[in-house]
């Protein structure tokens, strides 16, 4: 009995801690001033939201651009990561250890370590300040996650089914669409969610490669956060976390069961 109460209390504390930092953001987004020592704003206002949704603010444009970049990065990463993951998950070969190291390093080595050099490389290629350049840069941390997740998916994949389909006369593309893809889809969704989120939250790579021209939501958010407009900051922050939450809810059914958590695929 005491154990149960303790667990409940710990659970409550944990839940509170998980949502707590988001609470002031939500309150600020509808506050008209909120100064010490007021526990709640004395005046409420929809101004911050009105500004965020006004065409001149560019916030919605920024949201659209961020969605586009994250989606494109995810699709490209899937095209590259599925075959690579298959190679790592299904096959044993000489040098696999070093190959694995090379494929995961870009996700672990901090972005700042490559951003400076990458800026030099992309400048010469005319890729700085372009959406394409930013997507390429985002692929650096995203491909490793996608590859790792797909490798773990393929390691429990049964290739006999593919062989059977082929022996029944299916062409490779048919085999992939009708047999392989359905089998790896739940894992692929996990990988896609992860890839999307990693691209979605990039700040430094977008700032350095996009040079400010590619104005994704974190950059807009940062500008307001560093200028003391807490109400606008709150509104943009809420807008910024919404897509992730929606995608999580949408993909929740793919994440249940054996592959319960997206992090579980990556870590260990």
């Amino acid at each position: 009995m005491r154990g149960n109460a303790l667990r409940l209390f710990a659970g409550l504390a944990l839940a509170l801690w998980l949502v707590l930092p988001l609470v002031p953001l939500a309150i600020w987004s509808v506050a008209h001033g909120w100064r010490f020592p007021d526990l709640l704003p004395q005046q409420w206002s929809g101004n911050a939201w009105a500004y965020a949704f006004s065409p001149g603010s560019g916030v919605l444009e920024s949201l659209g651009l961020t969605v586009f970049i994250a989606t494109a990065t995810t699709v490209l990463a899937a095209l590259v990561g599925v075959p690579a993951g298959r190679a790592l998950g299904l096959h044993e070969f000489r040098g696999k250890g070093i190959v694995t190291l090379i494929l995961i390093a870009p996700a672990i080595v901090p972005g700042i370590a490559v951003a400076l050099g990458l800026h030099g490389v992309f400048l010469r290629l005319g890729l700085t300040g372009t959406v394409g350049g930013v997507i390429l840069a985002h692929l650096i941390p995203v491909i490793p996650y996608m590859t790792l997740i797909m490798a773990s998916v393929f390691s429990s994949f049964d290739t006999d089914v593919e062989a059977q389909a082929r022996s029944l006369g299916a062409r490779p593309v048919q085999v992939f669409i009708h047999v392989t893809l359905p089998a790896i889809l739940p894992g692929l969704m996990t990988g896609a969610l992860f890839a999307f989120l990693v691209s979605w939250s990039q700040y430094l790579l977008t700032l350095s490669i996009g040079g400010g021209r590619v104005q994704t939501l974190p950059l807009t958010l940062f500008t307001f956060a560093t200028s003391g407009r807490n109400d606008v900051t709150g509104a943009i922050a809420i807008l910024y976390i919404l897509p992730g939450v929606l995608i999580l809810l949408f993909t929740a059914r793919h994440l249940t069961g054996r592959n319960q958590s997206l992090a579980a695929r990556v870590g260990a």
Binding site: P83, V175, F176
Partner: peptide, 21 residues
Amino acid sequence: MGETPLPAGILIMLRSLAAFL
């Protein structure tokens, strides 16, 4: 063992990536 799943896909991807860039 399976055929490589995406040789055509990779080609298309690289081509469209180049065009996009």
